[in-house]
Nucleic acid binder design. Structure first.
Lengths: 217, 217
DNA sequence: TAATGTGAAGCCTTTCACAGCA
DNA sequence: TGCTGTGAAAGGCTTCACATTA
């Protein structure tokens, strides 16, 4: 295995495996075969072995993968071994929900700052974070925050995006559907709730037998 | 064009085009070429033509596509011409945020019911919806609700899923990362915020020049 | 024996390139 | 001329099948 180009799709599946391994290790599995993990997470077993082989041989023929070790390896590949500091911009309903979202911890994320442009919100506390004015975004670099979460309304998305990039942010999770120009050296992952919902009716009652597509995304 | 098998990926892109067309038609474009739309939404222009060709020839050589007509056609393909009634289960932070999410309307969705199992929440109003007890889920069929949105905590996801399926729901948008068994004749689209976030560090500072991957998903 | 790691095959998706039409 | 619609080529991803290893 000589570091060929690694499919983006393989990277997208690693967190799925990680979450599966977490459950299975809680269930007491010390070792796990690609077959068993495959059944559990709903991915083909060859796929799992292939995906893992891009990064190295973590298994033992005849035995499978050591659950703890594989978890550690995947966390390392995804750079989740360290804790990542994230900043959230836009403390509306969705922003609040994300701030209070309980499950970031298991992947090593920590939202350490929240920003809004509404004077009424600035200074308020959510959990143990105090909402700051967006003008403070400039200082993100000094605070070693490399990940941004955008939960502002559509109109403000481009401006927020530009500010985050200017502040040296390296990765952005955006809930805003609006198209961003000028992304460069910044990885952007967009979650567009309305758009995902918009695909649903197409699949309803169209097909005599539902195709059970790969996985909802 | 003889209805070959239509790639799921093409369907996934249709809402992107739809949203792009909305903006461009607001900007006053009466006709639009695949090239212009491509630049706007960040997809290859051949891709757009190919995607549309799966469903029919909507354009005019030399001119492009009539903006209004293409919007209408895509809405028709995605079955978004009618209004879809949706029910939301789990009125926590995220559920509230989704209930108040302003942008479902443009795709023709209408959340008409919300459910929770917490007696303190039942009876409360959010917008013009009254929160009901989850036991009322049974009646979804009579109420002609075919789409469900799951925003319950992980532990309750499987149970909620089973109830929605039993109630005759045809499509589900789930924010719960937990694996669902027994999906059948039901299309499930999953949004897993933590998992999307978990991919971000992998892409940060790994690559000398960022690959500008297709689009964040 | 049981399961990994992997070349090769097969399948799906994207891009190219151009005939044909307005 | 400008742009669509579409075969064909290229590229990428998934699955198969098996040599290999503990």
């Amino acid at each position: 295995m000589k570091r060929k180009k690694i499919p983006d799709e393989a990277v997208r599946r690693l967190p799925i495996y990680l979450r599966g391994l977490l459950s299975l290790s809680e269930q007491g599995y010390e070792n796990i075969s690609s077959k068993k993990l495959a059944d559990f997470v709903g991915v083909n077993h060859s796929q799992i072995r292939k995906d893992l082989s891009y990064f190295g041989g973590f298994g033992t023929p005849g035995i499978g993968y050591n659950t703890e070790n594989l978890r550690r390896q995947i966390r390392k590949i995804l750079k989740l071994s360290m804790v990542h500091k994230a900043a959230l911009v836009g403390v509306g309903n969705l922003g609040l929900a994300v701030l209070r979202y309980p499950r970031f911890g298991i992947f090593g994320f920590h939202i350490v700052a929240a920003f809004d442009n509404n004077p009424k919100k600035i200074g308020r506390r959510v959990g143990n974070i105090t909402i700051e004015d967006v003008s403070n975004l400039k200082a993100l670099q000094q605070r070693k925050i490399k990940i941004g979460i955008i939960t502002v309304p559509c109109e403000a998305a481009q401006e927020t995006f530009d500010k985050l990039v200017a502040a040296g942010i390296k990765g952005i999770l955006s809930f805003s559907p609006c198209y961003k120009k000028g992304r460069k050296k910044v990885k952007v992952i967009t979650i567009d709730i309305a758009m995902d919902l918009a695909r649903l009716p197409y699949y309803i009652a169209t097909r005599p037998t539902t195709r059970l597509a790969k996985r909802g995304r």
